[in-house]
Amino acid sequence: MNEIMQLFLENQEFIYVIILSIFLGIEVISNVPAILHTPLMSGANAIHGVVIIGAIIVMGHADPSNTLALVLGFIAVVLGTLNVVGGFVVTNRMLEMFKKKEK
């Protein structure tokens, strides 16, 4: 129990960030029209690609003699990049078509 309290005290700022972000996430998309559900899901999909930052950090600080860490880190960076690049490009492609029709 003590350890959990300790955890809470040490990470107070983060816990505030989390709670505020949860409400922000809800607020930000609550008025989305049905036609944008798919692009929005796809855009959100690209944004959680931010996990790539973690992969870069892991890879960047891995000991060059630790092969397991290097190999897994390498794969993680590849997959994270796939998520980011693929996510944003697919979303852009979908939205491009919406734009064309506004003319």
């Binding site: 809800i26 959100a44 944004i47």
Partner: peptide
């Protein structure tokens, strides 16, 4: 977290 909560609402 943003994606987590927005995704849940969606």
């Amino acid at each position: 977290i943003l994606v987590g909560s927005a995704g849940t609402i969606l």
